[in-house]
Amino acid sequence: MENGFFDKVEDNAAVRIWAETQQEKGDSLTEGYVSELWDFTRVSVTQNNLQEMKKIWGQWDNEIKRLFYCHYGDLPYLLDVKIDELLFRALVQYWNSAYSCFTFGKVDLVPTIEEYTALIRCPKIQVDRIYSKTANGPAFSKRLMNITGMSKQWVTARIKQKGGCRYIPWRNLRDLILAHPDKKKSVDVFALSIYGLVIFPKALRHIDEAVSDLFNRLGKGTTPVPAILAETFKSLNACRRVGEGRFIGCA
């Protein structure tokens, strides 16, 4: 315990030295760079309708809810977060893509891993096990079979393709949650739906293939927080770069 404490002290000292160096020598951007934020960005924050998910959660008894909290933390609270669209659109105007932060005059603010970890608050997460997509992971259908506990025929019949991406419709998962005889599998599918519809809402009312890959690792203690943070930065940068777009991420 004592050694662990001193390790953290050394880490903090290294961060302080780095910060002092940055103040003396400046940042890593091109010399003469000026941060310009006056361009207007037309951003859409269209969300999935979450009423059906709220209804399912409200119908569950305390036993199932405790099972959910044990494995997936405080995700259900995201269902009740009300997004102020006008405020969000105004906030995007201050996103500084060069520094990946919000710039308000001389003040910079940025969402952090610590804040996102506190928001999700899941006891199963191991902060040192960061998610990264493997080159030769299991197929989409295989992952869905593992998550849902359903047969290959059931899964493949419900996978849809839009453009170059594959999805499974929320309505199919909703029906499965309501009818599944295994409570743990119902909880798993409900959690997958939150990740697909609230945290990574790429296609409205559909759960993206990429989400299933991340979700399939959560049982091993992998933390999704850096992926959530990276998707937030990626989406904000994309909207600012083209001057418009739909924000894709956990608003």
Results as ranks from 00 to 15, higher is better:
Phe247Met: 04
Lys202Ala: 03
Val187Gly: 02
Ala14Val: 07
Leu176Val: 05
Ala135Asn: 12
Gly196Arg: 13
Gly243Asp: 01
Val198Asn: 06
Ile207Gly: 11
Val34Gln: 14
Glu10Trp: 08
Leu218Gln: 12
Ile64Trp: 05
Ser132Pro: 06
His206Ile: 07
Ile199Arg: 12
Asp84Lys: 05
Phe102Met: 07
Arg42Ser: 09
Arg171Trp: 13
Asp61Trp: 08
Tyr131Phe: 15
Arg121Asn: 15
Ser44Asp: 15
Ile125Phe: 10
Phe40Lys: 15
Ser28Glu: 05
Trp57Lys: 07
Lys202Tyr: 11
Thr112Trp: 00
Ser186Ala: 15
Lys54Pro: 00
Gln22Lys: 12
Leu29Val: 04
Lys55Leu: 09
Gly105Arg: 09
Glu231Pro: 01
Phe190Gln: 08
Tyr195Ala: 02
Thr46Cys: 01
Pro169Gln: 10
Leu144Ala: 08
Asp175Val: 11
Phe40Leu: 06
Gly219Ser: 07
Arg240Phe: 00
Val187Leu: 04
Gly32Leu: 04
Ala238Gly: 00
Ala98Ser: 13
Asn216Tyr: 14
Gln59Pro: 00
Tyr72Gly: 13
Val127Tyr: 04
Asp108His: 14
Ile228Ser: 04
Ala13Pro: 01
Gly163Pro: 00
Gln51Ile: 05
Gly219Cys: 04
Asp208Ile: 01
Arg66Ala: 14
Leu236Tyr: 02
Ser141Ile: 01
Leu173Asp: 00
Lys152Met: 05
Pro201Thr: 08
Ala14Lys: 13
Glu31Ala: 13
Asp128Arg: 15
Val81Ala: 06
Pro138Asp: 12
Cys165His: 14
Lys55Phe: 04
Ser235Ile: 00
Thr117Ala: 09
Ile130Leu: 05
Leu173Pro: 08
Leu109Asn: 05
Lys124Thr: 13
Met145Trp: 01
Lys183Arg: 14
Arg89Asp: 02
Ile207Tyr: 01
